[in-house]
């Protein structure tokens, strides 16, 4: 990387604000004082690099990585896409982590008290590293909706949590992928907290090309991280 390269800034027209009143737990947890913009030094232009050594052979296949005595229950799906920067360039060899509820809408997490069954053959966590073209691919089970305590009859739409690093500490992103046509999106304050213009970027596309005959439905989900922004070089 050239020394005078900076990254683009967080685009606050794309991201939700820290406080979304309808998403109640943001009220006491979102910072209220203005964020302070800082220039990009090596502290911002660097970030953790993870290699394939952090990824086991079954880590991308959630239909296999939790198996104890059989296949997990639910609808098998393939989730694939590209990690890109804002110039449309692929982000290669970057870690993608993922976690989700099982087909019944229950998480393995020890605090999840939802009255829905755990699946002894489904863990729900996985990770992979993008290839040279920025592509990732997971095999999993379509997650179920689950209730939460935000308001009366609150249900989260089907979603998969994603965590990405990108090339630097400032390209870090944690987000959630949703499914097309989910009627719960309209009522979900976490999804609705995103500016209207950018919300739909979190909805995956059903793809018959990705779908494998007799095997699994396919969904595509591209993820765009902050990109390098070349600043004029001061020659002297």
């Amino acid at each position: 990387m050239k020394p005078n390269t900076e990254y683009t800034r967080r685009d606050w027209d794309s991201h939700p604000p820290y406080i979304v009143p309808d998403y109640k737990s943001t009220l006491l947890r979102g910072p209220k004082k203005p964020l302070i913009p800082i220039p990009h030094s090596l502290s911002e232009l660097t970030g953790p690099v993870f290699g394939h050594d952090k990824v086991g052979p079954l880590d991308h296949d959630l239909t296999k990585n939790g198996v104890q005595n059989g296949d997990p229950l639910g609808e098998r799906i393939i989730v694939t896409g590209r990690v890109l920067d804002e110039a449309g360039r692929p982000v290669p060899h970057t870690l993608v982590e993922l976690w989700q509820a099982n087909a019944a809408g229950r998480y393995v997490h020890r605090w999840d008290q939802h009255n829905a069954p755990l699946d002894p053959n489904f863990f729900g966590g996985g990770r992979t590293v993008t290839d040279a073209e920025g592509r990732y691919r997971f095999i999993t089970i379509k997650p179920g909706a689950y209730p939460w305590g935000n308001h009366h009859n609150a249900w989260r739409p089907n979603h998969i949590h994603f965590s990405l690093f990108g090339p630097s500490f400032v390209t870090r992103l944690v987000t959630q992928m949703y499914f097309p046509g989910d009627p719960l999106l309209e009522y979900d304050p976490i999804y609705q907290g995103i500016p209207e213009v950018s919300r739909s970027r979190l909805i995956s596309r059903f793809s018959l090309d990705v779908t494998e005959p007799m095997q699994a439905l396919g969904y595509e989900f591209d993820i765009v991280l902050r990109g390098p922004r070349a600043t004029p070089v001061d020659e002297d």
């Binding site: 794309s14 982590e97 509820a101 998480y107 992103l173 959630q176 976490i190 999804y191 500016p195």
Partner: peptide, 21 residues
């Protein structure tokens, strides 16, 4: 040009995904 993918909360149940030890 593509635009930044919006951020979302890690939610309450990230531990087995991100700190699964």
């Amino acid at each position: 040009m593509p635009k930044q993918t919006p951020s979302q909360t890690v939610g309450p149940y990230f531990a087995y995904g991100l700190t699964p030890q």
